[in-house]
Design a protein around this nucleic acid. Structure first.
Length: 603
DNA sequence: GCCGTTTTCGGCCCGACTGTTTTCAGTCG
């Protein structure tokens, strides 16, 4: 069962409990657990394997024991029993915007809609026949709203899948530019999961600081949309033309710090924070902090002041996931998250040099990539082209290709260096801005764990990145053994590339015992890659968190296949920050000499 | 059902908006 399926099941149980008028805190507990599971980046099943279900925020003994039964036997008797007490037809209706468990229940019972498979068209028919308006608690307006919502639902225009972070960035940029045109706008920020830099984004959340809300809100609802979901004096919600939802909140500049904090979330972080504040007699909201005793509201212009008022040091948005950051802030043990400026090199770029690989070549030349590395202020660049294909080359041929490659790269680098020197002969700092290179190779880990490059060929590289590019669905034990074998196969193996092999939205990662793989990586001083390529963002942040806790080295690479991809480093930084990584956890923050020592195992 | 620097019992985040209502329930984030 995937996390999404588990979250859906927990939500169904919560909905059933709501219909059954069960204790409201039990319902909230299920919803909180569902949220938590949905946003988890490691698989619940893996956590069950490790006996760590109760490490999931919001999952305690009760839910954990049902999950245990679910994984063991394929079902939970207790949850099935709960679900069977309500009409099954209510569940599809929950996907229609504006319909929750109570309304859905009233509709299916009063209108006698029994078939879960046809309940949505059946409800549409009833609405068109005017049968909803006379019902108690409904009216003409709600009848037509239901019809509109069903129409949107049927067009399939509500995107349920989350999108990779960079795509959401693009939409947010357009929205921000649109809002900045309004006079009186002091600040516009993308908040929510975007500001927390989560790898995949559902809705786009935007906040505006202004003393004149009305023109901002009316400009917002002019942005290309298919529906205004709601609109009020402090914000609005749109269903955009592309099927994504966008939320706007406006706040005065004086109280903007509280708004930033509230609207950045995560939800569970905010709940935890508000619970803590209550113990100190403070009630938190997007308007500021209210004294429970006197009811007096204090406003905060900055988040730093807001956190300070609760007795906490500032917590970076990427850390706000209820993973212990509030306690760490209190104890002064928060990490100092890595920054883009800390990076001294990129170890995983593909050039257009053709070594007859089994996978794709890069688009740009060695010179173009070196120039880009220098422009980015890097001290070094690692060329990690894919190994030559093994099905169409003999072993001797592969060794020959790798040998010639070494010679050719040396020529290409020297001629680039000379041309740079010629152009900048007069510039004082020209030498310090010239990046150096490492000749590496990205070597396939074959299904049995052997490397797709003979040992003799490894003589012609400084180091290799090993990566899985095939057989993604092997059983867990086999995959684990495969990775361990690859990591321990040769001293020049220094980096495990995009470790899980996931592709966001299209491919699950491989299933491995990560704790065991990490233990081997640590013992052999092999760095785990955080691949910044937008569809990868791999290692996932939760595994980064585990790796950092274990004291394993990481490296952040772009896997660039073109010069412009080298700008994507910042997304890898986001993943690292979300995993509580500091500069000292990341091997390619080392200066050239130190890094060279690490790469060549001379330290 | 979860959870703990006042607690293993007794609390449980906070507010906006909408529609159908004369004070509130439902839904959402």
């Amino acid at each position: 069962m995937t996390n999404l399926e588990i979250a859906e099941l927990l939500r169904k149980v919560a909905a059933a409990y709501l219909v059954l008028n069960e204790n409201r805190f039990r319902i909230i507990a299920y919803e909180r657990a569902a949220d938590s599971v949905e946003h988890l980046t490691s698989e619940v099943k893996d956590m069950w394997d490790d006996g760590k279900l109760e490490d999931i925020p919001g999952v305690g003994g009760g839910i954990a024991s049902q999950l245990n039964e679910l994984f063991r036997t394929g079902k939970s008797k207790h949850w099935n029993e709960v679900l069977s007490q309500v009409p099954q037809a209510i569940f599809p209706l929950l996907l229609v915007p504006g319909l929750g468990p109570k309304k859905a229940y009233t509709l299916v019972t009063e209108l006698k809609l029994k078939d879960a498979n046809t309940v949505i068209p059946d409800l549409e028919k009833a609405a068109k026949a005017g049968k909803i308006a006379p019902m108690e608690g409904f009216g003409d307006k709600s009848q037509s709203v239901i019809l509109d919502s069903i129409a949107i639902y049927k067009r399939g225009q509500i995107k349920e899948n989350r999108m990779p972070l960079p795509y959401a960035d693009e939409i947010a940029r357009e929205l921000i530019a649109h809002l900045k045109k309004v006079p009186g706008v002091i600040r516009v920020d993308a908040l929510g999961s975007l500001r927390r830099q989560v790898s995949t984004i559902g809705d786009i959340d935007i906040a505006v600081a202004t003393d004149k809300p009305e023109p901002v809100i009316s400009q917002f609802v002019k942005f290309s949309h298919q529906k205004i979901v709601d609109q009020g004096g402090s914000g609005a919600t749109l269903l955009l033309s592309n099927g994504r939802q966008a939320d706007l909140r406006v706040q005065s500049q004086k109280a903007y710090g509280a708004m930033l904090q509230y609207f950045t979330g995560s939800k569970n972080h905010n709940i935890r924070l508000r619970e803590l504040a209550l113990t100190k007699g403070m009630s938190l909201s997007e308007h500021g902090i209210k004294s429970v005793r006197t009811g007096k509201l204090t406003k905060y212009a900055t988040e730093e002041a807001f956190y300070k008022a609760i007795g906490l040091s500032y917590i970076s948005p990427e850390l706000r996931e209820d993973r212990g950051e509030i306690e760490a802030s209190r104890n002064g043990t928060l990490p100092k998250p890595i920054m883009l400026d800390d990076m001294k090199g990129d170890l995983h770029v593909h050039s257009s040099y053709d070594l007859e690989p089994s996978h794709d070549l890069g688009k740009n030349s060695v010179a173009e990539l070196m120039t880009k590395a220098s422009d980015l202020g890097y001290a070094y660049l690692g060329f990690s082209d894919h190994n030559p294909g093994i099905t169409n080359h003999s072993k001797e041929k592969i060794i020959d290709i790798m040998k010639r490659r070494r010679e050719k790269y040396e020529q290409l680098y020297t001629s680039w260096k000379n041309s740079v020197q010629k152009r900048t002969r007069l510039a004082e700092d020209s030498k310090s801005r010239r990046a150096q290179y490492f000749l590496m190779c990205e070597v396939d880990i074959l299904p049995d764990g052997k490397l797709a490059l003979p040992d003799e060929a490894l003589e012609y590289v400084d180091a290799v990145i090993v990566s899985v590019h095939s057989s993604f669905t092997q059983p867990k034990a086999q995959t684990t053994e495969r990775l361990v074998r690859a990591l321990t196969s040769h001293p020049k193996v220094r980096i495990l590339g995009h470790p899980t092999g996931r592709l966001l939205g299209s491919r699950e990662g491989i299933d491995a015992d990560w704790k065991e793989v990490f233990t081997v990586a640590k013992a052999h001083d092999i760095a785990l890659e955080i691949n910044a390529y937008p569809e990868r963002l791999d290692l996932p942040d939760t595994l980064v968190y585990d790796a950092v806790k274990m004291g394993i080295r990481l490296c952040i690479d772009t896997d660039a296949h073109a010069v412009e991809h080298m700008d994507l480093m910042r997304y890898g930084i986001s993943v690292a920050r979300r995993g509580w990584a500091s500069a000292h956890d990341i091997v390619n923050t080392l200066e050239y000499n130190e890094f060279y020592k690490w790469l060549a195992r001379k330290s």
